[in-house]
């Protein structure tokens, strides 16, 4: 029997991979960092220039200040606009639909609904719900063709409508909770 233990969840054991793989991963990460740092080159150059490092490796095209300013303002405006659109839409939906249930609550599923949809008999549904170990045979389209109960649920004959009187304590609790849950959920 396994006891769930959160401290065992994370598997971070680089030793499980081969040496080659470890080297490749390290290299790829280093290269990726280099590429990422490279993205910053224009800025680094600019800063270097500002401090008078004229012999920098390369010269970047420095747009004039008004262009930089204008581009920055445009980006910020676009981001701001996106935010406004997103939040307005969210607020609209919250006001329009929040807190009110416009559609009637879906009625609880009945055994008839389910058997009709799956094309099975009530007996089959009872077997499916009442088995602790089952074998199901399917047709070509995945439809249920037969159900064999290898082992019924302890203390239950037909879980959907088991009389609460003769069910075992555990099963009785499950049954009432199940039926109650369906009613409550569908009715709220």
């Amino acid at each position: 029997m396994i006891t769930p233990d959160r401290s065992q969840l994370i598997i971070d054991q680089p030793r499980l991979q081969g040496r080659t793989q470890r080297v490749v991963s390290g290299t790829v990460t280093a290269v990726a960092w280099f590429v990422w740092a490279y993205l910053w080159l224009p800025l680094a150059t600019l800063v270097a220039w500002y401090f008078g490092v004229r012999s920098f490796v390369r010269e970047v095209v420095i747009p004039d200040a008004s262009t930089v300013l204008w581009t920055g303002v445009t980006y910020l405006a676009v981001i701001f606009l996106l935010g406004v659109v997103l939040l307005t839409w969210s607020r609209y939906n919250l006001r329009r639909f929040g807190g009110s249930e416009r559609r009637a609550a879906t009625p609880p599923l009945t055994a008839d609904d389910i058997t009709a949809w799956f094309g099975i008999s009530h007996e089959t549904l009872d077997s499916l719900r009442g088995g602790a170990s089952l074998i199901v045979e399917h047709g070509a389209e995945g439809e249920v063709e037969g159900v064999r109960v290898r082992d019924p649920l302890a203390g239950e004959t037909s879980p959907g409508d088991a009389p609460s009187g003769d069910a075992t304590a555990g099963a009785g609790v499950r049954d009432s909770a199940s039926a109650g849950g369906e009613k409550e959920l569908a009715g709220t």
Binding site: I120, L128, A132, L134, I135, V136, H138, G142, L153
Partner: peptide, 20 residues
């Protein structure tokens, strides 16, 4: 509880049987 499919049916059918 355990449901055995006599033959492989795919995940969607498996979930359907679970729901059933």
């Amino acid at each position: 509880r355990v449901i055995h499919h006599a033959r492989n049916q795919g995940k969607a059918v498996g979930l359907r049987m679970g729901a059933l």
